[in-house]
Amino acid sequence: MIYHLAEQAHWQQALREGAYTRSTRGRSLADEGFVHASSAEQWPVVRSRFYADVTEPLLLLHIDETRLSSRVVHEVGDPATGETFPHVYGPVDVDAVVDTTLLEPPHA
C-alpha cells in the first residue's frame, strides 16, 4: 500500500474522470511527470512538512499498487538522506484507491 495526500476538490474531479492526475500540492502530473506518494511511515512527515499551512481538510488516498495501470518506481526523494519514495508514473486509477481518510487541520 502507498499513500497520497489529496485536496478534496481534486479527488472529486478524479472520481468524475476516472483517474487522479495531481502530482503534489500545486503541481499536476503533466507538470511533474509522476504522482508523489509515500509509505505508511512517510505520509505523516510529508503532511506536516508540505501541508502545514493548509486550512482545509485533506484526503489521504490509500493506493493498492497492484491495482494501478501506471508503474511505480521507488526513487530517492531527498538526496541529503537517500530516503526513497514511491512515484507513480502516470495517472492513479480511481479503482486503485481502496480507501480514503479525511484529515482535518491542523496538518502540522
Score class of each variant (00 low, 15 high):
Val97Tyr: 14
Val45Met: 09
Val73Asp: 14
Asp95Cys: 07
Arg25Ser: 03
Gly18Leu: 07
Asp78Glu: 14
Val92Arg: 04
Ser48Glu: 12
Ala52Trp: 06
Thr24Arg: 15
Val54Lys: 03
Thr66Ile: 13
Arg47Asn: 06
Ala80Thr: 15
Arg27His: 12
Val97Glu: 07
His74Val: 14
Thr55Cys: 04
Asp78Leu: 11
Ala52Pro: 00
Val92Leu: 11
Ala9Arg: 07
Ala37Trp: 11
Pro44Glu: 10
Val76Phe: 09
Gln13Ala: 09
Glu75Trp: 06
Pro86Cys: 12
Glu41Asn: 03
His62Glu: 15
Phe50Ser: 08
Asp53Lys: 03
Val54Asp: 03
Gly33Ala: 06
Arg67Leu: 15
Arg49Thr: 15
Met1Phe: 03
Leu59His: 01
Ser28Asn: 01
Tyr3Pro: 00
Trp11Cys: 05
Ala108Asn: 14
Ala14Arg: 05
Ser28Phe: 11
Val54Ile: 14
Thr100Arg: 01
Ser39Glu: 04
Arg16Tyr: 09
His4Val: 09
Gly26Trp: 07
Pro105Cys: 09
Thr101Gly: 05
Ser70Ile: 09
Ala96Met: 10
Arg16Thr: 14
Ala80Gln: 11
Ala30Asn: 04
Thr81Val: 12
Pro44Leu: 13
Ala37Arg: 00
Pro86Trp: 11
Val76Asp: 04
His10Pro: 00
Glu41Leu: 10
